[in-house]
């Protein structure tokens, strides 16, 4: 089980680095798709099955397609200026390392202390659905409003004006 974990983790990290590092936007989009897939696998391993499926459909399916579509639409060429100024990378990298240096040991220490709960939580559709429509009904409705806002906004912004 852990071997699979490390394999998927490796794929995940490589694709993440690929997203950040590749100069061509389309490559980074494709790397992102790879990354999303590996996250979906992770979900499955953590038996959040419903989420794994949703991840694949929503993220990989819908969002990435939209992104690729827009990339193609605007035929973005390679980033013309030198994408990665030396100083900026250095500093950002250093910052990232500092962040990790602070967070990772902290995570280890505090979460190791917390005992793994006995309940073997199963993220099946039924469980999630039951919870979603009873307890989380208010955020669910709010989320619907959120999507509505996104749709209306997107249409308003991107609609081509036909004016005389």
């Amino acid at each position: 089980m852990t071997a699979l974990f490390f394999l998927v983790a490796l794929v995940l990290l490589i694709s993440a680095v690929g997203v950040v590092a590749s100069r061509n936007a389309i490559h980074s989009a494709l790397f992102l798709v790879g990354n999303l897939m590996s996250v979906a696998v992770m979900f499955a391993m953590l038996n959040a099955h419903f989420l794994a499926v949703v991840q694949v459909i929503v993220y990989a399916g819908a969002i990435m397609v939209l992104v690729l579509f827009v990339l193609m639409l605007l035929n973005i060429k390679l980033e013309n200026q030198p994408a990665l100024g030396k100083l900026v990378i250095g500093l950002a990298g250093l910052g990232g390392l500092a962040f990790l240096w602070m967070m990772v040991p902290l995570l280890q220490r505090s979460f190791a202390a917390i005992p793994q709960s006995a309940v073997d939580v199963q993220g099946s559709v039924r469980e999630v659905g039951k919870l979603l429509y009873t307890q989380y009904v208010f955020p669910f409705e709010a989320a619907s409003l959120l999507i509505m806002a996104a749709v209306v906004g997107a249409v308003m912004l991107a609609k081509r004006r036909y004016r005389a």
Binding site: V54, V119, V121, E127, Y136, A143
Partner: peptide, 25 residues
Amino acid sequence: GNLDGQIAVFFVMVVAAAEAAVGLA
């Protein structure tokens, strides 16, 4: 040991989708 985390992920995905739409627009 409870499903709240997964529900949160569900909602985060909703947000991500919305973000994608608006962002690209």
